[in-house]
């Protein structure tokens, strides 16, 4: 039976959210730049220079409870949606420019578990293949309830 796009199939987690320990205090944002959308950023912005860069699918930060503390901290970021965004060749060029011009140190690609999200990792791999300089790429897959499904170097 055809169930439609798994990335858009409706799921309801309301029952599953348990009252956890009350958290007090405010947490500081770990974002150290603007803009962040991949079409809006310039790969030559100074905060990408030799940086550890996080390329995140749009939905990731909403799904992960500790996105700032555990994943954004210490990194420069750009976000995009491999399913809905246009002109993705521009994305490949920008990632390539990070690697070759900004000489970034590492690239961490965070995506959701839904199949179409793998497209973002694919764009990154295309860019690395086209680059003369090589860098380590890490892929982190997040499930739709905010757990980490896998985290590995590719």
């Amino acid at each position: 039976m055809f169930e439609g796009c798994p990335g858009a199939s409706m799921q309801d987690f309301r029952e599953g959210i348990k009252e956890t320990r009350q958290e007090n205090g405010k947490r500081q944002s770990q974002l150290k730049q603007w803009p962040i959308q991949l079409h809006l950023i310039s790969p030559l912005a100074p905060y990408y220079d030799e940086a550890d860069v996080l390329l995140s699918a749009d939905c990731v930060a909403y799904a992960l409870g500790d996105f700032h503390k555990d994943y954004l901290k210490g990194k420069s970021i750009a976000i995009g949606c491999p399913k809905l965004d246009d002109d993705k060749e521009v994305y490949v060029d920008k990632i390539k420019s990070w690697i070759e011009d900004a000489k970034i140190n590492t690239l961490t690609v965070m995506i959701m578990q839904v199949p179409c999200c793998g497209g973002l990792l694919h764009l990154a791999e295309q860019a690395v293949k086209a680059s003369k300089r090589k860098i380590p790429i890490k892929a982190i897959v997040v499930d739709i309830q905010g757990g980490i499904l896998s985290e590995e170097w590719v």
């Binding site: 550890d52 210490g74 970034i104 140190n105 590492t106 961490t108 090589k134 860098i135 380590p136 890490k138």
Partner: peptide, 13 residues
């Protein structure tokens, strides 16, 4: 850390 992995990779290269 991811940062160290990147540095190590560059130094090895």
């Amino acid at each position: 850390s991811a940062h160290q992995v990147g540095r190590l990779f560059a130094e090895f290269s």
